[in-house]
Write a protein that binds this DNA or RNA. Structure first.
Length: 157
DNA sequence: GCCAACGTTGGC
DNA sequence: GCCAACGTTGGC
């Protein structure tokens, strides 16, 4: 079982949007970055735990928890010419992009901002920090524990 | 709204 | 295979 951080812009798809889906579950489509794709395709499995992150928020922050509830499967939006995520180079025989289904688990007691994560020496090697534009980041068990511990207390300044 | 970082594309 | 041009992400 692995840990992940998955980014979504709350104006586009927030954790509340996920919670309101049937069974709190939706497919995570639109990943069009090879590093992120490889993480999903090669390493994501049912039961993996997810930090749900709101990017492009003020401030950006970890807001809640989710879990992976499907194996990776082809991202069909790549085959839809009307989709924003259409990719003519992806075919039915050789799908280029994959996605998983994600289920809402719950919200953190307190959100954990990117600034607080960057200020925590324990988290200095988080891929969220070292690879700022990657939308699917692996999280180590230690990092997972630390973020959850931080969420127990409101941030001080 | 700006722009730094960085991934992708395509000419050569 | 290099690299310049370009597009996108996402923090600020």
């Amino acid at each position: 079982m692995a840990f992940w951080l998955m980014k979504s812009e709350p104006d586009v798809f927030s954790i509340d949007d996920l919670a309101q889906c049937p069974n709190g579950t939706d497919h995570w489509d639109g990943i069009r970055n090879y590093m992120a794709r490889n993480y999903i395709r090669d390493d994501m499995r049912v039961g993996d735990q997810v930090l749900f992150y709101h990017s492009n928020a003020k401030p950006p922050h970890v807001v809640g928890l989710a879990e992976i509830v499907s194996e990776p499967y082809p991202d069909y939006t790549a085959r839809n010419p009307d989709s924003h995520y259409y990719d003519p180079k992806s075919t039915d025989d050789n799908p280029r992009w994959v996605m998983v289904d994600v289920r809402y688990v719950g919200k953190l007691k307190h959100t954990v901002s990117l600034g607080a994560i960057k200020a925590n020496p324990v988290l200095s090697k988080m891929m969220l920090v070292t690879h700022g534009r990657l939308s699917i980041c692996p999280v180590t068990p230690d990092e997972w524990q630390e973020v959850l511990a931080m969420s127990e207390q409101p941030e001080t300044r």
